[in-house]
Structures are given as C-alpha cells and as structure tokens.
C-alpha cells in the first residue's frame, strides 16, 4: 500500500494532458528503444541519403552532385547485368527454397524412425557460414578437380557440369543450388511450425468427408499455412536479393562480372573510391528489395 502511494507521488508530477487524454510515465518507456532506433537506423539512413547525393570518395571532400549517381547507375551496363543476376538468383532461390522447404516439412511431419536426426541433418547447413559453405562446394564442384564433379561425370552426360563457370545458366544454377541446399532446412523449420499449428480436427474432418490427399493439402493445409508462407517468402526474397557470400566464395562474381550481384557491386564500388555512388546503389537495392516484399505481403494478406 505504502509502495503504491510512493509510486503515485513519482508518477503524478509527470502526468501530462494532451487532447484531453492523460499521459503518464509508462508512455515514455519506449524512449530508450526509440533513441537506439533513431541512432542506429534513422540517422544512418538519412546520412546515407545525403551521401548518395555526393561524389564522396571515402576520404576527401564530398561535392553535391544531385541525382547524378542514380542516373549513372541506370546507364551502367555492368550494373544492369548485376540487377539481372540478382533478380534471377532471388527468383530461383525463393521459389526453390519454398518448394523444397515445404516438401521437407511435409515429409518430416510424418512420424518415422530417426525423424529428429533427419531434421537436424537437413537444418545443419544453415548454421554454417555461407562463405565457408561456398568454398566447400567450390572444392567439390571445381571443374576437372572436384570430387562431386568427377562423380557426376561418371553418372553420364546429362549430369556433366563441364566448365560450369564459363556457362552463365549453369553457373547460375550451381549458385542457386548451393543457396537452396544451405537454407532449405531453415525454410522447413518455419513450415513445420506452421503445419503443427493446423488443428488436426480440420484435416480429420476433411478426410472423413472423403477429400483426397491433394484436396486436403490444397483445401486445408495450404490456406492455413499462409502465415508461414508469408514469413518464408519475405525472408527468402530479402536474403536472396542481398546475396553476397555464396557468390563471392564460389565465383567471385565471375567470370568477369557475369555473376556479380548488386551487393558485391556495392562493395567493389565502395572500395574503389566511389563511396557516394555505392551508397546511391545501396539505396536502389533497398527499393529493389522493398517492392517484391511489399507485393508478396499484400498478396498473402489478401488471401488471409
């Protein structure tokens, strides 16, 4: 009781009245978090916008150049190639990750001997650094030298990779494959959580009503998995569009700039004394990521 009065005495003096509504100290509890958010997100973002409008080389004086960096980006054939690479990689990865992740989840949902161990094995690659993963896969698939490369050659012509790095579609397929192999387990975990949230009565009712397995999947399971699909699609798009490590370790963006992603381009521009320009490209990448994320969120919300 005494404690309550004490608290009242403290709170009362800072009570504010605004638009006829009482405000007390608790409303200011979010201030530290807000301050941190402003310091580490809003300020750098605004600073980034400012830098993107300059020709700053990272050290010397920055001169205001307006939107020149942005227009230059769209006139640069290398940058346009990088956008194409990034989008193809993201589309391929996001689609395959979701399909394979869902397939894994459906398989891993059913009880069988050694299920837990299998789940762990599927998830395991996700905890390894993508850079290390890329190097390991490079040693496995290196043309003429890698163990898997030779093994695939033995399997017949349809499995031959050839000099996969000098063939753009094959290089891209290898990059997407490694990325999907690494992160399918993570997608699976989210789908598994979604599947476990679906009430068993609904599936049983559909079964009693005579629905076939495919009908049960499309009519019951899939609609109720929408929240998990949304999370997976959004995180996969963000992750794939900002890809850096896998490409850097497998191809270094090569040959030439054939498989260079926008993130690698930004890094190279930044260390190539074009800090202002690279910041402008980072802004563009931000919007490139934002658009598909918003679209997918909107679509899944409508379905909800």
């Amino acid at each position: 009781m005494q404690g309550k009065d004490y608290l009242k005495n403290i709170v009362a003096p800072v009570k504010l009245r605004r638009n006829g509504r009482k405000r007390d100290l608790t409303e200011f509890m979010s201030l530290p978090a807000l301050l941190l958010f402003c310091t580490f997100f809003v300020y750098p973002l605004l600073k980034g916008v400012q830098m993107s409008l300059t020709d700053w080389d990272g050290m010397g004086e920055a001169t205001f150049v307006g939107l020149a960096n942005f227009t230059r980006f769209f006139q640069d054939s290398r940058a346009m190639g990088d956008i194409r690479t990034t989008l193809i990689f993201a589309a391929g990865s996001a689609i395959l990750l979701n399909l394979i992740g869902l397939l894994y989840a459906l398989l891993m949902e059913k009880p069988f001997h050694g299920r837990s161990l299998t789940r762990v094995i599927i998830y395991l690659p996700a905890i390894i650094s993508p850079l290390i993963m890329g190097y390991i896969w490079y040693f496995l698939l290196q043309p003429g030298r890698g163990f898997l490369y030779h093994a695939m050659e033995q399997l017949g012509t349809s499995f031959q990779l050839g000099s996969w790095m000098s063939n753009y579609p094959t290089t891209m397929m290898v990059l997407i494959f490694v990325n999907v192999w690494q992160y399918a387990g993570m997608t699976m975990i989210i789908y598994l959580a979604g599947l476990q949230n679906i009430p068993t009565e609904l599936r049983e009712a559909a079964m009693i009503d005579g629905a076939a397995p495919w009908q049960r999947f499309t009519g019951v399971t899939l609609p109720l998995l929408l929240p998990a699909i949304r999370i997976n699609v959004v995180t996969n798009i963000i992750g794939s569009l900002s890809v850096f490590d896998v490409i850097m370790s497998l191809t270094e963006g090569g040959p030439g700039y054939a498989t260079e992603s926008l993130s690698i381009y930004i890094m190279r521009m930044c260390y190539g004394s074009r800090t202002g320009y690279s910041t402008a490209v980072a802004m563009i990448l931000f919007f490139i990521i934002l658009i598909p994320v918003l679209i997918s969120m909107r679509l899944t919300r409508e379905k909800d």
Binding site: M165, P255, G272
Partner: peptide, 19 residues
Amino acid sequence: AGFSGDDAGRMVQDLLAGT
C-alpha cells in the same frame, strides 16, 4: 583509381570465357 588490376583481370576472364 576506378580501374584496378583486379578489374583488368576480370576483363581477361571475360575474354577467356568468350565474351
């Protein structure tokens, strides 16, 4: 400054890749 030795090397990669 905007054209490093690595950039030149990547152009040779393109050359050898048939670009």
